[in-house]
Design a binder for these strands. Structure first.
Lengths: 224, 224
DNA sequence: CTTAATTGCGAACGATGATCGCAATTAAGT
DNA sequence: ACTTAATTGCGATCATCGTTCGCAATTAAG
């Protein structure tokens, strides 16, 4: 049972004997993020990241327990992009600012949105983001569980919104889904869908739509 | 280039020669859903479903192009559980009823929520659901794109909400994430998180919370 | 200098998605 | 009835993936 590198970066003095590690969890996560940005999340595998790092595949397991953990590290790495200081205003204003940052991050890293919807990573940066969100809710009447749910729903809404922005009608984007959609429309069984699609995309600036969406949700959650 | 069985079930008279297929896309999707319900989505693989069907693994490719398509079929199969007739009331009342049905479906099939967030399947049942949602929005002032986005966000919100219900704090549920969380709390760097978790779970009936959430969102989207 | 811990990693295992080719089956054409 | 062509089921196989094992190499402590 080894300790790996602890989940949090805290300076744990070298423990004892043996060669120093040639890599670090942070560098690995960074490389994995770059790889995903460049070639898509599908390129992120143990062997792929190992090649990116310039090491053998099995070596990665000295730093990471599983691929799942690798992905968690990637999410946390990306979450380090939040600027948590200098937010002011009301609770909903602060949360809107956080959500906007999240949306920007997901725009820079298109693979994040689906992952963030599917799993909850608990790295230090993610936790810091969560803590900051809770701070924004500090002086509200919400219970603890309600606060947590509010933030969870907020990031979920953000992810879903970004995912809507990214791939419009079809699922993947290779045209297969689109072809099926076209065919389905040809059957005439979905007239309203055809009509809705006939009008072009909304084209109005999504920033405004997003802000309205978030603000509305927060108001519904009981915030000013 | 074969035709497989067409995406929609329409009675396409047997095309020409050869033995009749021993299975059908519907039965396969059904079996896959049962398998996922029983042993989790992780058990759904080509070989797994083939075994469930009682056929060789390669045979499945006579009915399905890829695993992705299999999953799409599963989602559509599950979407056949919607009762789309007999909805009445205002636009938001109808959509709330649809969302409630969606939530129930996701409760019966816990693996659906994550999938529905990650991808958009376009099977006949899913399209029918979408068409029904558009019908609810028929006499509103929304543009076509806005209608589509409203429904997409509605199902996303539903999925996210159910996912919140299902796995509380940690990501997976094997205790690994929970352990990491416990440890992180011990550092004292996340006092607000600790405080929020200290109070027990909300325990109030989630039905009410869900209804409020959906209604609020719809009101924000410009509906009555 | 010995000892023990630790790293990097090639080799291997099991499982997966997917393809290929072939035998078996069935209907149409004559 | 016989041929022909299409179609099915599927064993065998390949590439790839996540993961484990064992060993040589490296380094610090005693």
């Amino acid at each position: 049972m080894k300790q790996k590198q602890p989940a949090t970066v805290g300076a744990c003095a070298r423990r004892s004997t043996g060669p120093k590690p040639q890599h670090s969890r942070e560098k690995i996560a960074q490389a994995a993020v770059e790889l995903a940005d460049r070639e898509g999340i599908g390129a992120v595998s143990i062997r792929g990241v190992a090649a990116e790092i310039g090491s053998g595949a099995a070596s990665l397991y000295r730093y990471v327990d599983s691929v799942e953990e690798l992905v968690d590290l990637m999410i946390d790495q990306v979450s380090s992009g939040y600027e948590l200081n200098g937010l002011d205003g009301s609770a909903s204003e602060q949360l809107l600012a956080l959500a906007r940052q999240g949306r920007n991050i997901m725009h820079r890293h298109p693979w994040v949105a689906p992952l963030l919807l599917a799993k909850r990573a608990l790295g230090p940066h993610t936790l810091a983001y969560l803590e900051r969100g809770l701070a924004a809710l500090q002086f509200t009447a919400l219970t603890g569980a309600a606060k947590l749910q509010t933030i969870a729903m907020l990031t979920a809404i953000t992810s879903a919104f970004v995912q809507n922005e990214q791939g419009e009608p079809a699922g993947d984007g290779d045209g297969k889904g689109a072809a099926a959609l076209i065919w389905a429309l040809g059957t005439g069984k979905y007239p309203l869908l055809a009509e809705s699609l006939a009008q072009g995309p909304a084209s109005v600036d999504q920033d405004q739509v997003f802000a309205t969406l978030v603000t509305t949700y927060l108001r519904g959650a009981g915030l000013d």
